[in-house]
Amino acid sequence: MHVTPTSPPPPTPTDEPIRALEAASDLLKALASPVRLGIVRELSEGGKYVHELVDALGVSQPLVSQHLRVLRNSRIVTTRRQAREIQYDLADEHIAHIVLDAIRHAQE
């Protein structure tokens, strides 16, 4: 007897908004750190290496690396190897708008 794998049922119209809200919530959770917001702010100006982020943010290299890992796992930043270093960039410029608007709003 041959059994064919079943695929999950197609999402219902009410599932789509919930999934979008969950994805937005996950994005905001990934950004919910002053260091990660600072990283995104710095990357909004263009790609940077870890040592540049350390200098700009005034925090330790291990701390920056830890937060970059969270941002990479959330697909907020991308990497590109340049010789022996890794350059970090924002995956999407919309993220920069969200963070920069939030920072401006907090300063009002």
Rank of each mutant, 00 (worst) to 15 (best):
D89V: 07
E93D: 07
P8W: 07
T14Q: 12
P17D: 06
L90W: 10
T14G: 07
R41N: 10
G47S: 02
A24V: 08
D55P: 02
P10T: 10
D55Q: 13
I103H: 14
H97G: 12
N73H: 12
D92E: 15
L43N: 05
R69D: 07
I39G: 09
S25C: 10
D101Y: 08
A102F: 08
G46K: 07
Q87W: 01
M1C: 03
Q87E: 13
L21Q: 13
V99A: 06
T78N: 04
L100S: 13
P62I: 11
T78H: 00
R19M: 01
V59P: 02
S25G: 13
L43P: 01
L100G: 10
I76V: 15
H97I: 11
R36I: 12
E16D: 10
H105F: 11
H67Q: 15
L31Q: 03
L37I: 08
S65F: 01
L28H: 03
E16Y: 15
R75F: 04
H105M: 06
R84D: 05
S44R: 09
V54F: 00
A20N: 09
L37W: 00
K48P: 10
R75K: 12
S74E: 03
A24D: 08
V77L: 01
H2D: 13
L31V: 07
A30Y: 08
I39D: 00
R104Y: 07
